[in-house]
């Protein structure tokens, strides 16, 4: 009876996911194996031709760029997020939860809006250039929009709240008396941090990196809004294949390559992180 009830309760959920998540993903896999010609005729025979074409020189450059952007974004998120998480966890005091909410709040607002909000600041006649000109720090307005910098900035801004959270959790759970013990044994605060606090927070740093790297790698909004054709990422290529070139099989192949790249880099990173621990 209980087992029946359990299945009756999960069945709609399972069926929904099978229909609208799993099955669609398999249609992408299936579709990727057929090629399309200039007249949009779909090939009869399944082949891996799309995957060969997906690794063209031009596409490889885009993939390499996506990986570079995602890595830089991850590094920037850690550099900004770690001290912030540390500050809140150790010195937040009674305001801790409020300070944390302030970090997470932007994450729940529209990513599209948060991304284009930067254009007002970054554009040639934008706020940043105006301030710098007024302070006589520059004599000519800087070109900040449509560059590597603006795309990476958009990504970092988008995922920083996400990166800070796991680091905070790993610091918050730490027993502070360990630091006191280190101090009693003669460690300077700096030594205590690098020998005790930081190693113990590594799990948080690792999940923060993954949680930033993976969506950054697959992003297309930041490059679309703050970038130019020279700053395209894989996501932009996929979007183009689907909505501009109407080569859905090719777009599907690129999507699978994207997922493959994500899984490989995650496995690689976990492997490296695991080795460090051992």
């Amino acid at each position: 009876m209980k087992r029946f009830l359990a299945w009756a309760l999960v069945l709609p959920f399972v069926l929904y996911n099978l229909t609208f998540v799993i099955f669609p993903l398999f249609t992408v896999l299936y579709q990727s194996m057929f090629t399309i010609d200039a007249e949009y005729n779909v090939s009869q025979q399944a082949s891996l031709d799309n995957f060969k074409a997906a690794f063209s020189a031009a596409n490889l450059e885009v993939m390499w760029r996506s990986a570079r952007y995602a890595l830089t974004t991850t590094a920037a998120c850690l550099l900004l997020g770690y001290p912030l998480a540390y500050f809140i966890a150790v010195y937040g005091g009674r305001l801790r939860s409020q300070l944390l909410i302030l970090v997470v709040l932007p994450f729940w607002t529209s990513y599209l809006i948060r991304t284009f909000a930067w254009t007002t600041l970054l554009q040639k006649e934008g706020v940043i250039n105006a301030v710098l000109l007024k302070l006589h720090l520059i004599s000519q307005p800087l070109q900040m929009l449509n560059t590597d910098f603006s795309v990476i900035l958009g990504l970092t801004y988008g995922f920083l709240p996400f990166a800070t959270l796991p680091i905070y959790v790993s610091l918050e759970n730490q027993d502070r008396s360990l630091v006191e013990a280190a101090a009693d044994l003669g460690a300077t605060p700096v030594q205590a941090f690098w020998k005790v606090v930081f190693p113990l927070s590594l799990p948080g740093v690792i999940s923060a990196s993954l949680i930033t790297f993976v969506p950054a790698m697959g992003d297309f909004v930041s490059a679309e809004i703050l970038g130019s054709p020279e700053t395209q990422m894989i996501g932009n290529l996929i979007q183009q294949q689907f909505l501009a070139l109407f080569n859905w099989p090719m777009g599907s192949a690129l999507s699978l390559v994207l997922m493959l790249l994500m899984v490989t880099s995650m496995a690689l990173y976990m492997g490296l992180a695991g080795e460090r621990d051992a």
Binding site: N17, F23, T27, M259
Partner: peptide
């Protein structure tokens, strides 16, 4: 397995979810 299913859409990149659903609806 059902518990893992709940996390699946969070793991798949949004753009892939988007094109997968588009393909599915049209097919």
């Amino acid at each position: 397995a059902v518990g893992a299913l709940a996390y699946l859409p969070m793991m798949v990149p949004e753009i892939v979810m988007g094109i997968a659903l588009l393909t599915f609806f049209i097919k």
